[in-house]
């Protein structure tokens, strides 16, 4: 029987049109990369019974199960119901019909480093925030990539995403408790930005150089440096890979609180609504911002937001990035 597949519907359903005619591949969303081990049984079953026995680990912390017949899609969709339930519905995502698999695939899985559940450097619970953001933005067809990372080490490479959310902590200093051992000063100088200096036996912090990594708190032997219990975030925007001008994300708002993060991301979807080029099959958010300019994006992203007083907004952003230039780099002969 000849296959008659609506590729648009299949892709929206999180299946890929593969190079093998008749075979598709399903991408499992795992918000924040947080997966209970019990689900492996189901992934194994789908891969072995309906796929080619292989599970690929995607760069966005999902699983891609390949070699699935298009005809198996309904069956596989019913099988992944527990995954939708546990990974989406239970964290608050609204999916009207859970028997038909993923309702959309445009907004990509929210990737996150392991965060402060495990990592000593992380400044927040990346899993929890990934789930909160997932709830706010999924399902959605707009092509947006969000990645969360616990600290400026950026192990998740959030700077390659449309939104990179980097954990920041405000170190608070107890002058009396400081013994001037310089553990924080030396570390900040050699590993971070040199925001700390010794001044008359005590430590001075240059707030403009501090990136809120929290290493001083980790190093301090007397708890002279402690965490401000309020969590802050560095919102990096419009980093991307891709054929057209790949580039790393730049800082949009420093020292934003969690509500600001959520609201900025939600406003971004409204921005896309207003500015996306509807003549194209799809348009990535980064290229839309390229067309409108940063100021237009900024004004929309900040609309109706009451910023926390600590937040600092970029006046201007000049993304650099790479532009292919065959004429320069790809000459036939070395002269």
């Amino acid at each position: 029987m000849t296959l008659d597949v609506n590729t648009k519907a299949v892709v929206k359903n999180a299946y890929r049109i593969t190079k093998h005619r008749g075979k598709t591949a399903l991408r499992i969303r795992i918000p924040g990369g947080y997966l209970k081990a019990k689900h492996f049984d189901l992934l194994k079953e789908i891969a072995e019974v309906y796929g080619d026995g292989i599970v690929h680990l995607t760069t966005r912390q999902g699983f891609e199960i390949s070699g699935i017949d298009y005809s198996s899609i309904p069956k596989v969709n019913s099988l992944i119901n527990p995954l939708l339930q546990d990974l989406e519905i239970d964290i608050g995502v609204i999916i009207k019909d859970t028997s038909n698999g993923y309702p959309s695939a445009g907004t990509r899985n929210i990737a996150a480093c392991i965060g402060n559940r495990v990592c000593p450097f992380a400044n927040y619970n990346t899993t929890a925030l990934a789930q909160r953001i997932e709830k706010e933005i999924y399902p959605n067809d707009y092509h947006v990539k969000v990645a969360l990372t616990g600290c400026p080490n950026d192990c998740i490479k959030s700077r390659m995403n449309d939104f990179g959310i980097v954990g920041m902590v405000e170190p608070q200093y107890d002058y009396q408790r400081c013994i001037g051992c310089e553990a924080c000063v030396k570390n900040c100088k050699s590993n971070v930005t040199g925001a700390l200096s010794l001044h008359k036996g005590k430590v001075k912090r240059d707030a403009r150089r501090c990136i809120g990594c929290g290493e001083c708190i980790l190093k301090c032997p007397t708890a002279a440096w402690t965490r401000n219990p309020v969590k802050f975030y560095d919102i990096l925007i419009m980093g991307r890979t891709g054929k057209k001008n790949p580039r790393i994300a730049e800082e949009f708002i420093q020292w934003a609180d969690e509500d600001v993060v959520i609201k900025v991301i939600k406003n971004t979807y409204r921005f896309i609504d207003e500015h996306i080029d509807k003549t194209l099959p799809k348009e990535h958010i980064g290229y839309i911002v390229d067309r409108t300019g940063y100021q237009v994006f900024r004004d929309k992203a900040l609309e109706d937001i009451k910023l926390n007083p600590e937040a600092r907004i970029a006046k201007n952003i000049q993304w650099g990035g790479f532009r292919y230039s065959s004429d320069v780099f790809m000459s036939d002969k070395l002269q």
Binding site: N116, P120, A122, N123, Y124, N125, G150, G167, V169, G214, I217, L218, C220, A223, T226, R227, P229, K231
Partner: peptide, 15 residues
């Protein structure tokens, strides 16, 4: 207890 003022994020300091 100093809530959330521990060395690591989301830990407390007791002193």
């Amino acid at each position: 207890r100093f809530v959330n003022r521990g060395r690591f994020s989301d830990t407390d300091l007791i002193r």
